[in-house]
Design a protein around this nucleic acid. Sequence first.
DNA 1: AATTGACTTAGACAATGTCTATTGTAGGAT
DNA 2: ATCCTACAATAGACATTGTCTAAGTCAATT
Lengths: 138, 138
Amino acid sequence: MSDLLERLRGRGWRMTAQRRVVAEVLEGDHVHLTADEVHARAVVRLPEISRATVYNTLGELVSLGEVLEVATDKRAKRYDPNAHRPHHHLVCARCGAIKDVHPGGNPLADLPDSERFGFTVSDVEVTYRGVCPTCAAA
Amino acid sequence: MSDLLERLRGRGWRMTAQRRVVAEVLEGDHVHLTADEVHARAVVRLPEISRATVYNTLGELVSLGEVLEVATDKRAKRYDPNAHRPHHHLVCARCGAIKDVHPGGNPLADLPDSERFGFTVSDVEVTYRGVCPTCAAA
DNA sequence: AATTGACTTAGACAATGTCTATTGTAGGAT
DNA sequence: ATCCTACAATAGACATTGTCTAAGTCAATT
């Protein structure tokens, strides 16, 4: 199923029950869990998994480029398994729900040299904020 | 000097040495300090100022719309006194230096309805990442 | 100058994240 | 199939950032 696990094995990752469970918890679209949420879900499948292992595994997945860290929230970091298709985020200001979005335009090109302060600019992150339908109805 | 202090007084803010010092520490362009950095600088001028007061004062300034919270860093929140001219941020991936930038384009218009998931979108934050001249030289 | 309610303080507490010493185990070697 | 060993997992201490509370202090009004 998960070709993520295949890719990781191919890179010499030692496969353990803990790592498999963390990778499985992250499967799906529009998934943006905090480390503790990942831990809570992992514990359901593997009760003895520790917090430290979840943090370590998430850190490794980020280093390997298989998962992105997202800082839309001002509290905990969130982990986004959608690392292979570039995208940005749409966040509900009330409930914190996060959607992956693919805006048009090219914000990198919109930053003139005069506004670059000599930096070599390589990346842009765009975060849209608004209110989701559920919160708007309430 | 600081018309910020004038505005605050006009809004019924009780003026205390602590609040004056916090407001003074935030003066300047491209200032993006964490709460603890603000505290460290405030202590130089007013040794007995407490951490709680710095947090409280920063929170009040944010509520009043005089200071923005910035989450470019994944660790602590940063406070940006440049609240009256809309802008975005350019961050050095190595040393964390932050510059205020004013890109062209209109990212809000670049998000098609089909990518809005029914949200009422009201705001966009753009964070450019790169390497600053100092770090590039090193 | 007296009053009063808002402000400040110290320190406990909470949430998130990191590190270490110890124990366990995946996967190759035999 | 069993053994080895380096890598991984664990529990829990520790670190950082932020919040809260109870008690004392003081700015602005009277």
